[in-house]
Computed example of a mutant assay.
Amino acid sequence: MEDSVREVEMVVFGVVDTLLAKTGVKCEDIGILIVNCCIYNPEPSLSSIIVNRYKFRENIITYNLAGMGCSAGLLAIGLAKHLLQVNHNTYAMVVSTESVSEHFYYGEDLSKHLINCLFRMGGAAILLSNRPSDHNNSKYQLLHTIHTNTSASDCNYKCIFRDEDTVGIKGITITNDLLITAITTIKPNIVALGSIILPIKEQFLFITNYIARKLLPSKHIQPHIPNYSNVVEHFIPHVGGKMVLDQLQKSLGFSDICMEASRMTLYRFGNTSSSSIWYALAYVEAKGRVKKGNRVWQIAFGSGFKCNSAIWCAMKTVDDEYDNPWADEISGFPMTLAINEPTPLFFEPTK
């Protein structure tokens, strides 16, 4: 427990200190605080720990999201968006992290060791504002958030599950339904998002193709994949793992360069849970690819099963920043990743 406290405080205080120094925002001006950490849930809560550390004002609105997996960071962004619609002229701070110490598995059940191999410590702090005076200072404008939850399905609900092994050691079980569950949960999220951001022509082609496949199943008509690259310049999927990224690229038809940020983030930082999409966005920024008017699509998915998307519009060209986590080594990326044989992974058989 002491290790978890030191670990989380090191990361959380570090990212909050950096954010406050970078933006110049005073603690008393922050009206909303949302913290998400899946497994580490102390008493008092992480949100209370942050309020105490930075002496936020007494009427600050605080939320502590727990047990919501890798998609919780974008879910917190969606919650902040709704709160900012009814609380005017204020700031919302979102802090996303995870504890490696709390979910490390020491037992003998091989299906629980995947988490030990894949996850790393990380964190991110994001500041959102609805103050008119911040319009010209902000890096991005939040345009849309989409949330999909398929927990009603027993198969989806149980595909990532924290439980005890036969000798009582806690760990996270991942079943062999994970890949199918991820794709079936991501699909309705993408469809819902497409109905908002895709041009009418693409929506018409998608609907007519869908109807044709339903009416003429014997014809084996291939599904129409909308060209999302025409409406978003940067695609930032959660770095859940190589298999998921491969399947996502295949399903949506994105190019290798569109997937580069997430693949390099997985290579360099591992899966930092809900904060991984911010490391991937930082990669695109460090490369100098974000220009004024560009749209960025972040999509994250995780246990439950849940999927969340956010669409941002760059308010200005984002220059290389000294405190970017990639700043010291971005010139060495992208790496050429070796094409290896699939790693033998041990999944719990689906029950």
Rank of each mutant, 00 (worst) to 15 (best):
P199H: 09
K214F: 07
S275F: 11
N87E: 04
R213E: 11
I61Y: 11
S153C: 09
S303W: 01
A182N: 07
I39V: 15
F119C: 05
S153A: 04
G270S: 05
S101N: 07
P44K: 03
N340P: 00
G194K: 07
N176Y: 00
D109T: 15
V35A: 04
V244I: 15
M264V: 00
A300C: 14
N156E: 06
N87Q: 10
G304I: 10
N52Q: 15
I186E: 02
S274I: 00
L142C: 04
N136H: 10
V95L: 13
K214C: 09
I225P: 04
T208G: 01
V284F: 09
G14R: 03
L74R: 04
F119Y: 14
A152N: 13
G122Q: 06
R162I: 11
P188H: 02
C307L: 08
L193V: 01
F254W: 14
Y63P: 00
V16N: 01
Q203M: 12
I34N: 11
Y54L: 02
S195F: 06
I183T: 09
A125W: 04
V191N: 01
S303A: 14
A21N: 15
I172A: 09
P217H: 03
Q222M: 06
D154V: 09
I221V: 11
C117K: 07
V167C: 10
N324G: 07
I339K: 13
